[in-house]
Design a binder for these strands. Structure first.
Lengths: 233, 233
DNA sequence: CGGCGGGTTGATCACTGTCAAGACCGGTGG
DNA sequence: CCACCGGTCTTGACAGTGATCAACCCGCCG
């Protein structure tokens, strides 16, 4: 892989206005930068953190994508969520101090690592950062609610289009139009068999809602997707 | 119903040490009490808030229980979560400013209503309250993750025991040992049919894991429940 | 060119959603 | 105190959906 050495810190980061720096006065930004390890590189398959160990950092996705997964009591993995540029990883583990899931890079990616303890100190010092933290958490809760609703749809055939709509909405926020996920991960996330995912994709292609080349999915008709999701529910 | 006029404010509330007051110095507690409408009464079926309106309050469950539900795109309701004494309602709606779901009392209950805006002001003033907010949110995220894992279990027969284990763990935290929910709500929450819930309950009773009288469920053998959940997964 | 992992498609069968009927419970009024 | 009634819960029968198993295809890499 080509080493593009365009390492930027928070002052020139395109995501900064959606990220933690937006809660800190520019004149004090250096103090945040001091506690952030920006632009850490992860190859596809690399692990950011492992389930069941001490939780001490947050990660902000800068480029690429990540998934989180839990190994449940009887040994099989369930993919909890997918994370795109601007998303923050590790929020759910702060209360308990132990990581509740593992996080794995889906493709070659960059993420910024922030140590929690000094961040908490900054949060107390800068009121806007405290507001931002609440907003970020609230947003994260809202997203998991959406996921939960998606999972509670009875018909497996309707879950995939619903998931695609939600995911597409999120990718569009960061001008990142294509969906590029393993069937395996989608299946695990939605609680259905890989074969069912595959079959559902085929139907959506036949219906003209999406196109696909290899692993890459393009959404071409959101309304039709919603229609199908509704009619098969 | 008997009117027991034992209205206590936060200074004498048994839940205070798990609630927002724990983030505020005792000498300043009166300022929190000023913005809290404590001990609001709700009859079974009453609505605390309605989906899709302006979100401006948090509610802390004091006694009884509540459920939240979303009406999705094609009109049917999905129960998102159940809330017990000490739980906080409305966290997920703060970021967007619009309530994402409706909240309904499951039985005659008490809840304390807290206006968000002045709470945010207090949060900025008292660092411990900021920490507590993060902790509460993080905990809430962790809980929804658990729910998500439960929903992603393929086998419907395994979802009920799993749910019971999670719920039982939470009820036990507040010495509230019985589970008293409508089958309808459980079914909606778990994304399965009422009849399946009923059948699963019968099997669990046959297996000796739980007992039931009317709507009240008692868990008598958690290990066996886990065993069944695992073996039918 | 051959092998490998992931993706698709097909056939079968268990599970569970649906429909229907009956049991149970709680509340209301006589 | 009892009879009635409505809603909730349970149980049974049946059919459709989706998980499982198996075979095949495709793109990627050595």
């Amino acid at each position: 892989m080509l080493e593009k050495k365009i390492i930027t810190d928070c002052t020139s980061c395109a995501l900064a206005k959606r990220c933690l720096p937006s809660g800190i006065p520019v004149t004090d930004l250096y103090r945040f930068i001091n506690i952030a390890h920006t632009n850490q590189t992860f190859a596809s398959g690399d692990q950011l953190f492992k389930q069941g160990v001490k939780a001490s950092h947050l990660y902000v996705v800068k480029t690429g994508s990540f998934k989180t997964q839990i190994i449940n009591d009887f040994g099989d993995a369930h993919v909890n969520g997918f994370y795109l540029p601007g998303d923050i990883l590790g929020l759910e583990s702060m209360a308990g101090g132990i990581t509740l899931n593992s996080c794995i890079a889906i493709e070659d990616s960059l993420a910024c690592k922030i140590t929690y303890r000094p961040l908490a100190a900054l949060r107390k010092e800068f009121p806007n950062l405290s507001d931002l933290a609440v907003k970020i958490y609230s947003q994260a809760l809202a997203t998991t609610l959406e996921t939960q609703n998606c999972l509670s749809i009875h018909s497996a055939a309707a879950r995939l289009p619903q998931f695609l709509i939600l995911f597409h909405r999120r990718t569009n926020q960061v001008t990142y139009r294509q969906i590029r996920l393993h069937r395996q991960d989608i299946a695990s996330h939605l609680g259905i068999a890989v074969e069912t995912v595959s079959r559902s994709f085929s139907k959506l292609i036949d219906a003209g809602c999406i196109t696909k080349s290899g692993r890459i999915i393009n959404i071409i008709n959101t309304e039709a997707l919603e229609e199908i999701s509704r009619s098969t529910a």
